[in-house]
Each structure stands twice: as C-alpha cells, then as structure tokens.
Design a protein around this nucleic acid. Sequence first.
DNA 1: CTGAAAGCGCTTACAG
DNA 2: CTGAAAGCGCTTACAG
Lengths: 362, 362
Amino acid sequence: MSNTFWNDPIVQSNMKTGATIQDIAAAAGVSKSTVSLVLQHSPKIKAETAEKVREAARALGYVYNRGAANLRGGRSTTIGMVINDLTNPFFVELLVAIERVLAQSGYTTLMAHTAESVATQTRVLQSMREQNVAGLIMSPALGTPDDMPSEIASWGIPLVLAMRPMGPDVDTVGVDNNVGFALATEHLIQQGHTRIAFVGNRAGYAVANERRQGYLSAMARHDLAVADEWIVDVELTPEGGRKAVRAIFDMKHRPTAAVCYNDQVAIGVLHELDRMGKRAGKALAVVGCDNVVAAEHTNPPLTTLSAGAERLGAKASEILLNRIASLPSVSGPPIQYLVKPSLVVRESSIGIPTRAPKAFAQ
Amino acid sequence: MSNTFWNDPIVQSNMKTGATIQDIAAAAGVSKSTVSLVLQHSPKIKAETAEKVREAARALGYVYNRGAANLRGGRSTTIGMVINDLTNPFFVELLVAIERVLAQSGYTTLMAHTAESVATQTRVLQSMREQNVAGLIMSPALGTPDDMPSEIASWGIPLVLAMRPMGPDVDTVGVDNNVGFALATEHLIQQGHTRIAFVGNRAGYAVANERRQGYLSAMARHDLAVADEWIVDVELTPEGGRKAVRAIFDMKHRPTAAVCYNDQVAIGVLHELDRMGKRAGKALAVVGCDNVVAAEHTNPPLTTLSAGAERLGAKASEILLNRIASLPSVSGPPIQYLVKPSLVVRESSIGIPTRAPKAFAQ
DNA sequence: CTGAAAGCGCTTACAG
DNA sequence: CTGAAAGCGCTTACAG
C-alpha cells in the first residue's frame, strides 16, 4: 500500500469510516431519534440536550449523510441542469445565476452539457432521473422531440425550460424574441438604413422563427422590401458570421446593416469585417443579441439586445423551487416568463464611439 | 389541487411512487436478490431468468435508484467539480472536457462556482462532502489556505487540482507557466522588440509569479533591461487590460510589446488599443495565454499560448478516476502533470494578417 | 443458479 | 421532551 520510494499523495487511505448518528447517540447518551431531531433543529429537543449532542457530533467529526436522509425522507436536494451549449457565454451566465440561487436555497446543482445532441440529452436526463433530482432546468437541444416535456412530467419531476420554449403547457423562462428583433431592426432603420440583412437563419426552430419574424415585421411596418438573399442561412457560430459577411459583400443589392441571430454570430461578423479592412458601423452596421460580457470588449463594441441572464436564471430557479415546494399538487397555471429585451447601443451600429452606452427600454 | 380556471402545467401530481426491485421481484416471481443481480448484469443468473426480470422491469417502468444503491454499497458515483471563474471561457472548456470524460465513465458531475471567494468555496466543499462525492476536481479560488488539500485528504476524498498547484504532494494538472511565458517573450524578442511589458501582475500568487518569472528569465537571457513600471499591476480581467494600455501609453520609455497574464486581459488590451485608434501588432504587439476559442475571433486575432483545455480536462479526470479505483489504498506517487504550452501566432503580435496560423511547439 | 436475512445512515410516526 | 421500532431501496455475503 505505502511505498518507500515516494511520498504518497496526501490521501487518507485508511480512514475510520465516518461517524453516524448512532455513534453520536452513544457518545451523548441519547437515542438516534434525538440526534436526528437535533440535526434538524427541531424545537422539540431541550436546549441542553441539543448542545450535548452537537458537542458530541463536533468531537466525532460527524458529517451529515444527505443521501441517506433523502432516501429515508423521500426527498431530494439536488436539481439537474441541462444546457445545450456552454461555448456560448450567455448560457454560462445563466448557469452561474441559477447555481447561485439554488445553492442559497440549500440545493445542489447537477450539471450536464449536451452540445446540442439529442442523444446525449436523452442519456443525461436518464442519469438525472436515476440520481433522483428534485427538479430540472433545461435549455433543450435543437431538435428535441415535442413530447419530451410530457415525458419528463410523467416521471413526476418538475421542469422549467430556459430560452427555448416548447409550447404553452410547460413552465418557461425566456425572451420575447419577436419584440426584441423588431426593436433591433427599428434601431437600424432609425439610423437611416433601408437594406438590412438577417444573419443566422435556422428555419424550423421556434426561436429562429421568432427572431426572423421580429425583423420582418419591423421591415414591413416601414414598407421596406426584403430581398430573399438578405435572410442569410448560416451556422449559429462565429464561423457562420464570417461566412455571412463574405456572402453579403458578394450581393449586388448589398445590405448596409445586419441583425444577427446572437452575439456569437455577430462576433464572427465583426471579425470578418476587420479582416477585410472594413469597419463595423461604417461598412456594415451590426446588431447582436444576448449582451454577453464579451460584447462590451469587441472591436468595435457591439450593439446588442439584452434580457439579463442573471434575472432569467433567478426567475427560472424561483419557478422551479415553487413547483417543488407545492408537490405533490400543482401550484398554478403554466408560467411563461418572457422578458422584453432592451437594446444596448454601442459603436458597431452607429459608426462613432459612444462613451456612455445608453440602454433603450422597449 | 386541480383548478377549473386554467390548464395545469403538465406535472404528474399523483404519480404512483415508482416501482422498486421488490415490485419487480413479485412480478417476475423471483427474489429481490435475483433482481438486483440481474440489474448488475451478474453472470450468476441464468439467461432466461434475467430476461424475465428485465421484461418485468420494463413493464413496470422501473427506474434504478442510484442513491439507495450507493448508500448500501458504500460507493458513490458523483464527482464534485469546483471552479473559481466561469466567466473565463478557458475554465468552461475545461469543465466541459471533464464532464464529458466523467459521464463516459458512469459518473455524474456536481458543479459549483466560487467566483474566487474562499468563503463560498468552503461552503461548497462542505456541501459536496455531505453529498458524498467520490472525488473532487478543483481549481482553487485565489487565497485558498495552504492546508486545504490536506484537509480534504483527511476526509478520505481524492482531490485533483486544476491549473493552480498547491505544492508537490497534491495531484495536479496544469501548465508550465515559466516555460510558456519565456516562449511568448522570446517570440516578441524575435520580432525585434526590446522593450516588453508584462501585464496582469498579481504578486504573491503562485501562477502569477511563475508567469512573471518566465517573462523575466527570457528578458535576462537576452540581456534586455526591464523597467519597474513595465510590470503592470492590474486586475486579471478585460478591464484590467484596458487600464494597462492607458498606463503603458503614459510611460516615457514606452514598451512596444506586451505579454498578458491571460486572454481575458489581452482582450481588454486589444479593445483599448482599438478605442485609441491604434492597431495591435503595430502600436503594441500583444500576446495572451489560454487560447480560448474567442482568441481566434478578436480584432485583430490574438497570438496566445495554448495548452489545450480538452487535454488537461481529460487528464485530470483520468488521474482522479485512477485514485478512486485504487481506494482505499493509494496507487502511486503524487502526479504533477504539467503541459508545456505552445504558441499560436496570430496577427496581434506581428502586425500583418496570417492566413495560416502556425503553432510553434516549445 | 437462486433465496432469506442483515444492514447502509437516516427520518418519522407512535408511545410514553 | 425522549426512545423503540419500522422502513426508504438497494447490495452482499451466506446458505442451499
């Protein structure tokens, strides 16, 4: 086991297996029941007894075994979080916000990343179910089957969707994409643009449809025609954004502005413009969506829609915790919490440095 | 419970509490023991019996209760991951890599974020201990007390540190910062620079010391003097990088190049240069560290040190899984897996666009 | 090849 | 205010 030729890494190899409430009971001269109640801060136990028990627990280096408690009590204090894309900083900000709120409420977060794979997502959900999670927050992978929410419901596990709605019967936290993208488009129109592209089309996916629709409705409202080629179908990545710029500069009736699906795409757009020796805001006005932290530090800084990952994450946690608290009954109608985004105007859409970025509320 | 004024969200409120192995045993006409063995794919059970049991399990919609199994079996299949800073994409890439490897090995990842708070970290570790994690991977918060690793060892939980070493007795996965920053500095010297700044000094922290030391050793090796003010002490954030640029352009003997603590800082440097109407690579050659995905899409693209978050994460998981497998004994000497970073050269350090970035191995 | 029994560490009625 | 007893869902020797 130990070897004379090296120093073992500091791992306590033959620990006495941890103390249990049984050991505490013996040490304190009371019963297991009493120890358990003390640990739960029950008012039923006399203060002196409680103190004696706590003292014994301390002396024995006792560690509460939450798994055992959950098994016996029929509860669970872990919550599963399933994220489709952690390479997008927006989802990381969301994750951090959720983890913080849940931790404050005494819950532990099981984290899983699907990388937009439905197969991975299925596996991960199965695993979380076996881990007996008390609830799930999920940003579903693209292509998730429509019946996934009701399948999860049949497991008896409350579910809150984040950012990607799947119908009115599922608790959801997200963004009013239609309103947001109309706002972004209006901003560009107000800057005098009439030929405006939409970059990052993904026909068939709800969120993409809403965003495109918001853009189209603003264009229509101002009687601005939209050429087919202006709806640029590229991947929702920086690389997609770069490709879109090349496409745009090949068009005969070239747009002078572009609304991007999200900041990831917009960052690619900014990058390709720079590589071509062009300046965003001059050669092409650019607007993104999500207001990731990095959007403040792009060159030039990126104008973008903001809904507040922090707030959305907190709301998702709150809804889920309420559902869990009311089990086994259901505490009210399905909740669709949709934030109307505001526009954070920076240089990428207006061509001159703004020293004090203004947030225009919708 | 149900209300006539709204459609309840689809949450199964009065689920029959899930089937257990007991139920399966009854349905299949065998004992609990047999069911348990079938579930573990034991070769001791006859194929026909196993099939009959599996059939019954399927019919009852049985879900394995991993918590109960772990309690009885004295094992644990969850691993805790404690990350100091998820706003830095490098750590996200690391997290994703680790989570993927652990999931493949049948482990579930408990995730926690400390935001560099030692107090939060202490709380989080306590919670993971109560959750009975089988092991811990941790990127410790700045200012973590030196005895934290031995404290965790005394709990009997294997620990692997990531990116931030805490002495030779603790299993660690990380980067040879000294070698890396010497390499980065040499690169700038080869470009003809003689006045080179180091941006992002944090005296007293091991990693910062190593990085500064690597820079200083390269300068010394080429007999280049280093003015005190060139060691720029700023926060390790984009904002810190911006501040550093302002400081540098106020110096009388102004440096013409800067080695940055990490990509986050470098991105701030690039940004402030742009705001001042200057071009990185021309006005100031810039090198970062981490090779985050975004470094490829900055304007101009960022030259940076790369150690491969993917590889580091995989290695950390592998080391931890080996330690767990060998418990309660210790499988060998402490492991210090230090990657020698390579330099990915892009435009920010050379002033002209590189179409095909080359990676110079150390 | 399969079953009966004990027990992982805790909580929760139920008595007293 | 405290204790004895049952049991959460599983695994693991031990018999047969």
